[in-house]
Amino acid sequence: MPGLLHLDASARSRSLSRRLGARFADRWRAAHPDAPYVHRDLAADPVPFIGEAWTELCDEVMRRGLTEPRRYAEVVGTPAQRAAWAVVAPLLDELLAADVVLVATPMYNFSVPAALKAWIDQVTFPRMSLAGTRFIVVCARGGAYQPGTPRAAVEHATTYLRDFFDGHFAVTEVDVVAAELVNSLVDPRLADRRAEHEASLVAAEAEVDRLAARAVVAA
């Protein structure tokens, strides 16, 4: 039975990225009412940043050439490493159990929130493959950063996530949905672009629905 891991990273409790993520999750869960579902709010319940003990675990995984994540616990030795592993283990279990990982995030200062990066760092080890897992990224951006726009080159949120999931985890299915110009709702300088934001949101919602329907068919 397929499982969904749903991550929220926005500092706002009523953010647009949360709204889009919930839209996907609601449709997926309606189609799989008995399937495993885990929602982790990385802003409300932050994952700690990695420390030196985590780096020791990472080094030992490399030394032993371990490629199976479920064997990583074998490298734990010192009390500090046990404490580090106590943080990693439940996060890694949730990730490995998921067939679909939904990442709902804003773009902050051209990149992903620190809360999301902290989660990524905790669950990532050398030569770790998640091939076969599907990643859905839904993102809200304050300005316009889509390909072909003047600021496209500084969009380091969805491009980073796509490149990382593909390049490190060997994931071939990474779908990205982004709503643009969210700041037009609050910034007077962008007020004349509110119609663009609204069109972008409508398109994002339609794409979320399409991806959710596709996930149901694939399952």
Rank of each mutant, 00 (worst) to 15 (best):
N109L: 02
F165L: 13
V101M: 11
T172Q: 13
P188S: 01
G132F: 12
V75P: 01
R63T: 15
A97V: 03
A80Y: 06
A140Q: 12
A89F: 10
A89D: 12
W119P: 03
G142H: 15
R127N: 12
E60Y: 08
D99Q: 04
A191R: 04
R63Q: 15
I136M: 14
R189M: 00
L181V: 03
T172V: 14
R82P: 03
A152M: 00
R127G: 10
P147I: 03
R189A: 15
R162P: 00
P69L: 07
P79F: 05
A195R: 12
H156F: 07
V174K: 02
L95Q: 03
L91I: 05
D187A: 12
M62S: 14
R82H: 10
V103R: 11
A157M: 10
N109P: 14
R151Q: 10
K117G: 03
A153L: 12
V177G: 02
A118K: 09
Y145F: 09
E180N: 02
S184H: 10
A73F: 10
G77F: 11
P147G: 01
W85D: 09
W85G: 09
Q81L: 13
E74Y: 08
C139M: 07
V154S: 07
H156A: 13
D175Q: 04
A114K: 02
Q146E: 15
G148C: 01
N109D: 15
